[in-house]
């Protein structure tokens, strides 16, 4: 995924890589784009833009390596460089704090939000999706990559250009926030026993 040796592909090879290694990930890519932007048209633009870039830079991709991670990295960079710049104010999250907290023993003493497995079973609508979408985009991203797309920490570190330790602490914080949201839902839905 780094600036590896440039490959040389014929046009047939390029098309084969594109069709067999890139396109099979398009639903995941669209889902990622949608979860980042929370807008269907923006997601569509982002996916299209990513695939056009992927084709343009196909010779930096080594056939048979992790195409999905490569594509996700391009999409995430496009999102940051082209999309987020236009729309987003700087993140208010203090990541250093997130990391220090994660590596302290306090992490075990944190109050787990009042949430039970049973109340999750009743969340059959959009609750979980809304809870995810309500997270700050950087927290949302790590949950998407890990829990929806099953990337390993090492792959996530490469996609996001952050150290593995940061992947872990961010993921932990993201899950904690997600649980808080879900427990709010559980409360408003009136699960007295939750």
């Amino acid at each position: 995924m780094e600036e590896s040796q440039k490959q040389h592909y014929s046009i047939q090879e390029k098309n084969a890589i594109f069709n067999n290694e890139f396109l099979p990930h398009i639903n995941s890519m669209y889902n990622f784009g949608y979860r980042l932007t929370l807008d269907q048209d923006d997601a569509k633009d982002l996916v299209q833009d990513t695939y056009l870039k992927a084709f343009r830079f196909i010779e930096s991709f080594q056939k048979g390596t992790n195409a999905k991670a490569w594509l996700f990295r391009i999409l995430k960079n496009s999102f940051i460089n082209d999309y987020r710049k236009k729309t987003k104010e700087p993140s208010k999250v203090d990541y250093q704090e997130v990391e220090m907290y994660y590596n302290s023993e306090e992490v075990d003493r944190q109050i787990t939000p009042d949430l039970r497995v049973e109340s999750l079973k009743d969340m059959i609508g959009d609750e979980i999706s809304n809870a995810l979408n309500a997270l700050d985009v950087d927290f949302r991203t790590v949950i998407i990559l890990c829990d929806l797309e099953d990337f390993k920490y090492e792959e996530m570190a490469k996609i996001l250009d952050i150290p593995i330790g940061t992947v872990r602490s961010r993921l932990h914080r993201a899950r904690q926030l997600l649980k808080e949201k879900l427990s709010e839902y559980a409360k408003t839905m009136g699960y007295k026993n939750s």
């Binding site: 889902n31 999750l120 979980i128």
Partner: peptide, 16 residues
């Protein structure tokens, strides 16, 4: 349980 719920409910968007 949350991980499973996420997977079953947040991955269903397919490309337009």
């Amino acid at each position: 349980a949350i991980k499973q719920l996420l997977k079953s409910r947040c991955c269903n968007d397919s490309v337009p």
